[in-house]
């Protein structure tokens, strides 16, 4: 289990029309994001508090600005 830091869990959301399957999110945040067989992100768990900084990096690194970090 990742430390939660007692804060509310956040969730990565994908803007599916914007996403082009570049895959940087899965490179930067493999703990939360994996890629499907076509290279599009699969987000099947919330972002643990300890990885929040990495999640923000993934959001800002997305070449299509297709990621958002939202409160659950």
């Amino acid at each position: 289990m990742w430390p939660t830091g007692g804060r509310e869990a956040q969730q990565l959301r994908v803007d599916w029309q914007a996403c082009d399957g570049h895959g940087l999110c899965a490179e930067l945040l493999p703990e939360v994001v994996r890629l499907d067989e076509w290279g599009f992100p699969v987000v099947d768990r919330p972002v643990p508090a300890g990885l929040r900084r990495h999640a923000r990096t993934a959001v800002s690194a997305c070449p299509k600005l297709a990621l958002r970090l939202q409160q659950r």
């Binding site: 599916w16 029309q17 996403c19 499907d36 076509w38 290279g39």
Partner: peptide, 9 residues
């Protein structure tokens, strides 16, 4: 054909 998972899936 806008969302990858739909377009390919």
């Amino acid at each position: 054909n806008r969302c990858g998972p739909c377009r390919f899936g």
